[in-house]
Design a protein around this nucleic acid. Structure first.
Lengths: 202, 202, 202, 202
DNA sequence: AATGAATGAGGCTTCATTCAT
DNA sequence: GATGAATGAAGCCTCATTCAT
């Protein structure tokens, strides 16, 4: 017999998560203040501590929610793609879109979460592993079908792609140049395929 | 006429900059404290404010010095290289080495500098432009000599390379896997060349 | 007519008082939290405020209940004792046993109750008076029967005994030395009797 | 080359210690606030943390200073006394006077410090040992000279005396009855001597 | 009657920055 | 020129108390 409905409670949690996502993205972890997050969520400071253990725990949850949604989208999309270069293109497109939409949050994940002591063995680490393994699996499958050269270092490919996308998104967000999502994804796919595939260059 | 010699003054400034680089790298911007930097430089807290406007200004100067040294090294090295792929390899090697040696500082540049309103039009922005343009110039020259395909998007290449290196270095620093600098530079160069060069694949 | 039976209500109150006694004893007044008391009593935070005005009021009631029980025991025991030194011994034994069993609570009474403005004229002050007067009465009776020297300051005797016991119990609880209840009671009784009685020393 | 004179610095420390003594005595440890102490010392909150590690450390220093002064007085006085009963009387007088003057602080020592984890092996524990051993030594000397019965438990005597004094002082402070220091010391000495000495009762 | 979500004041502590020395 | 004592504004977090449900 909860005092308020589960729905209302979830709404509060969602409001806090949304506000936290916003403020963390704008300010970074350290510079973000609980007070500002609370104000942004139209909630008292104290309430945040009913739902989250502390500031870092709040960040973890923001990222977890973000990551889960992202994973679902990506896995669904990639499954529908046929050939290696189409799967690669799909992944690049998805990832680029996400990074552009939430660059700051992705950065936050990279700089704040992985460093934390609680990261090892956390749900969010599992998510990260699952996420990055998607690309490694695609490359491995490409090698198996002969689409990708056998001597390719799939880890390097992974770092190149994720690194490139992170950088692209970052530049886009910080600069004032627009980014042609579709075109960039196409170009990047071609560049990578040129570097690692067997057949004639496109 | 100054009460202390210009030399002594410069020594003080250098000591502060070096200490600040160390502490900022270890702790990040927010978590670094002026007191710790001062102690590490064997200087009083107050003196820092004689040479630098505030904490962020100090960070800016640290990054500027770091960047300038890096630039000099890189430009000298690249000039001595002949063919496009050797120039590319040189740049990748240099950049990777720097990033691995000072990952935290590079990250700091990426995540902290932007927050300041003073970044636009600052000396540090100019440095950044000059730095990244080195690679764009190399690619343009490669296109001119016919070593690189004419339809290659040189900006994309730049982002792929810098992004990949950043990602590689970060993973190296945060993970426990060692990084084979020479081998990685070689692999990355080959991957990129495969993707953008004209001649037969290596 | 009450919606819940008087019995159930009393059970609730008792559960709260018992939980409060436990938590106050373990943590002290300030460090004890209403939430922990409520949890320990399997009751909601809010319910405590139906039966008690505030946290301090709750402490008062805990101490009152504790005191009342203690009084009953003591008065019953003392009545059954014959001679002065047996009465004294009984009182010392009882008091020492209670203090050792609930030292923290006794301390709490001593250190926290006074802070409140409500103490003067409160039920708990009356209890305290009644409690300490037991000993004064015993001594007075001893004087009347000639067992105690007439010039003895009964108030001083009272303070010596209660003070000694408090100190003994505290040392026992905080130190790691065991306490021989019977032996200590015997020794203390003899010491006091030696100091105030008429007959030959034991 | 300190920025301010050592004198001025000591004055600040003293002001903080004095204010802390006052507030801790009035409110107890938990209920005392750093802000109030700072205000009472006409000092900023932050300054307290330049001289003391934290709130508990501040309490420790307050008590240490208090204890040291007390020790000096007591040892000087006791040395000048000749017979056992005069030494005992001196000790009781001193201790009673101190307790009456600073009952709350003495209580604080008893309830807050001994409980603390840092107490074991601390300077303050050493002081306490030295302090309580004075009485034990006096009794032992009395036994050696034959003034005190050989079967007397000197630890019990110690607890009786300190406990009695604590209780007397407490009652005095909380009640409105005046306390005749000299008379009470005399009475208490006689009571104890009656209980433990050899010769004819006084 | 009972709940427990929500509040918001207040606590301890840190630290960038200033300024008397 | 240099120091470091001093400030005071935040920051994170806790918790007694209230009140809508």
């Amino acid at each position: 017999m909860p005092v308020i409905s589960a729905q209302r409670m979830q709404d509060r949690v969602d409001a806090i998560l949304e506000a936290a996502k916003k403020v963390f993205s704008e300010k970074g972890f350290e510079a973000a203040s609980i007070a500002e997050i609370a104000r942004s969520a139209s909630v008292s400071d104290g309430l945040i501590y009913r739902y989250f253990q502390n500031k870092r725990d709040l960040l973890f949850h923001v990222l977890r929610v973000f990551y889960e949604r992202l994973m679902l989208d990506l896995e669904r999309e990639v499954d529908t793609s046929a050939s290696f270069d189409r799967q690669l293109h799909t992944l690049i497109s998805c990832h680029l879109a996400v990074f552009v939409a939430d660059t700051a949050l992705c950065r936050l994940f990279i700089s704040e979460v992985r460093v934390s002591r609680d990261y090892q063995g956390s749900a969010i680490q599992a998510l990260n592993r699952r996420y990055t393994s998607i690309l490694v699996d695609i490359v491995a499958a490409g090698i198996a079908t002969g689409e990708v050269r056998a001597d390719v270092n799939s880890r390097l490919v992974r770092d190149v792609i994720y690194g490139a996308i992170e950088h692209l998104a970052w530049r886009h967000v910080n600069g004032r140049t627009g980014l042609d999502l579709a075109g960039t994804a196409e170009d990047l796919t071609r560049l990578i395929c040129g570097g690692i595939c067997t057949g004639p260059r496109p």
